[in-house]
């Protein structure tokens, strides 16, 4: 029997499959389609202090083997998340939850993480300093080592839960940012968020997306994600959650061989809502084919 369990900073996961923030809401839509307790965990919709509509529509565009979104952190705000979404989730989901937190100032990140620290079912905080779709805050905190370190230290001061900093690929040196987060106390690194992208409607001669640019995700970005996970694995000694275009069990193995301890699945959930169950079903068989007895044995294997 293949062991596909894994661990993130002491949090045990039955399998490494985690739906990525922003592609899974607060779980309700998917729980209608399948029992979401088969997941390792999931990272809920990026939450800010105040409710947000997000950016103007249209905010979705198609790409070859991927998509662009400029949703812009639409969410019900932390009060509604704590008072409505999490209690509803508690009734149906009995696995560890990853709280994805966003903000527009260091104080806002701190405020939200402090509130989430009191939520028992939340076992990991994933702090998004990489949203490309908001003009202030968001990615601005994830593009310099100093700003990334400042947010990391601030949220670490208000929580005893493991803090995973979610990094942007839209930087010159991903390792410098990751190293700065680790030095500031981060317990782990999540990467990659979306790549800043754009499409133009050639009939209208105008950007497809109202906000002009957005975050590019999907299978097209998978090689970039694998490369960055590989680089960061070499640079830090804390666990990595790998993501970016993961769509199959084969992708999960590749991401873990690059250095990920667990893997998030994003855009693929939107195209095929049954992607995660399919991966979880396939993973043990694929491990057998590859003669892997214990999945955690392959973390970072590609580094030789």
């Amino acid at each position: 029997m293949v062991d596909i369990s894994t661990e993130l900073s002491g949090v045990k996961l039955d399998n490494p499959i985690i739906p990525a923030s922003g592609t899974f809401g607060f779980g309700a839509e998917f729980n209608n389609l399948y029992d979401i307790n088969i997941l390792g965990s999931f990272s809920f919709k990026g939450t800010t202090k105040e409710p947000r509509f997000g950016n103007p529509t249209p905010r979705i565009a198609e790409c070859r083997d991927g998509m662009i979104n400029s949703v812009g952190l639409a969410n019900p705000g932390i009060d509604a998340v704590i008072n409505e979404e999490l209690p509803a989730l508690r009734d149906v989901f009995h696995k560890p939850i990853i709280a994805n937190i966003s903000g527009f100032s260091v104080d806002e990140y701190k405020y939200c993480c402090e509130r989430m620290n009191k939520e028992d079912q939340v076992e990991i905080l994933e702090v998004n300093i990489s949203c490309p779709n908001v003009h202030a805050g968001g990615m601005a905190f994830g593009t310099t080592p100093d700003a990334a370190a400042e947010v990391t230290a601030a949220v670490k001061s208000v929580t005893d839960k493991p803090v995973y900093m979610k990094l942007s690929p839209n930087v010159t040196s991903i390792t410098d940012i990751a190293v700065a987060c680790e030095a500031a106390g981060a317990d782990g690194i999540s990467l990659i968020n979306t790549l800043l992208g754009m499409r133009i409607d050639i009939k209208r001669g105008r950007p497809v997306i109202a906000n002009k640019m957005g975050g590019f995700s999907g299978p097209a970005i998978f090689p970039v994600a694998v490369r960055m996970v590989y680089q960061v694995y070499d640079a830090v000694n804390i666990p990595i959650i790998g993501m970016g275009g993961v769509s199959t069990a084969e992708d999960v193995i590749e991401m873990m061989m690059a250095g990920a301890s667990a893997v998030e699945v994003g855009a693929a959930n939107l195209v095929d809502p049954f992607t995660c169950p399919k991966i979880i079903e396939r993973l043990p068989k694929l491990c057998e084919e590859l003669k892997i007895n214990k999945l955690t044995d392959i973390i970072g294997r590609a580094h030789g």
Binding site: A61, L270, P273
Partner: peptide, 13 residues
Amino acid sequence: RMGCGFGACVGCS
């Protein structure tokens, strides 16, 4: 314009 069509991505608000 929709991402998923079943309420997950909040693209079509």
